[in-house]
């Protein structure tokens, strides 16, 4: 099974580009079994979203 460190690398990368299918599946499997990494992924995605909102906001002003 993929390690947590590796899983966090993949989840970070998935915010920047589409992962190859095998990697997507491996990550998904890891996340199903690992609560900590699942949480980490949600938080990285949240970070990604709020940053986007902030740059939209400053573009509006």
């Amino acid at each position: 099974m993929m390690s947590c460190l590796r899983a966090t690398e993949r989840m970070s990368q998935s915010l920047d580009q589409k992962l190859p299918l095998t990697e997507r599946v491996q990550l998904k499997l890891h996340l199903l079994m690992c609560k900590r990494c699942e949480r980490c992924q949600q938080q990285m995605e949240l970070l990604h979203r709020v940053c986007r909102k902030r740059s939209d906001q400053s573009a509006d002003n």
């Binding site: 390690s3 949480r39 949240l46």
Partner: peptide, 23 residues
């Protein structure tokens, strides 16, 4: 992360309260 590349206790992600509207 520990030597097996798993989260070290105390450094793992905690539950976040009231996350989304913070921005």
């Amino acid at each position: 992360f520990d030597e097996r590349a798993h989260w070290v206790s105390g450094k793992q992600p905690e539950h976040w309260v009231q996350p989304e509207s913070s921005y």
